[in-house]
């Protein structure tokens, strides 16, 4: 199973991310989002950031997760390349704890192809059959 795929979209970036578990799907979605901006294989794992989030369902949690990463990218002026996601599901909500690996942006080493401004809810979907899939469009 490939981790993610980009789909054609005129003005913005559309992708699908996959996983055998929702955790893997969320990690791959984050990887897809940063790969839209930069070759993440060139990003060093120099620092770790931690994120805690919750949401009433997996779909809203997935939106919050990607939006939180855009926020961190912007305020930390950092770029990330590996994501360890842990989920806990209770009756009323989903909780996420993640460790995010990356480094601060270094203009001399990091070449960006675009900048993600935000995650849209347009055609935003999380689905599950024999594996998990999520799809979204990023505003760049």
């Amino acid at each position: 199973m490939k981790p993610f795929e980009f789909l054609e979209h005129t003005a913005d970036v559309k992708f699908r991310a996959f996983g055998l578990t929702p955790e893997e799907m969320l990690g791959n979605a984050a990887l897809a989002m940063f790969n839209a901006m930069i070759d993440t294989s060139k990003v060093r794992e120099e620092r770790v950031w931690e994120v805690d989030l919750s949401g009433p369902d997996l779909e809203q949690l997935a939106y919050s997760w990607l939006s939180e990463l855009v926020y961190l990218f912007d305020v930390e002026v950092a770029v990330f390349s590996r994501f360890e996601v842990h989920l806990v599901q209770s009756e009323s909500e989903w909780k996420l704890h993640a460790r995010i690996f990356g480094e601060e942006i270094d203009g001399r080493r990091h070449a960006f192809e675009c900048q993600v401004k935000a995650v849209t809810l347009h055609q935003f979907e999380v689905s599950h059959n024999d594996h998990w899939t999520m799809q979204t469009i990023l505003d760049v």
Binding site: T10, D12, L121, H122, I137, D139
Partner: peptide
Amino acid sequence: AHLGYGFPI
């Protein structure tokens, strides 16, 4: 006009 998200651009 072109493809946006929600509203068209």
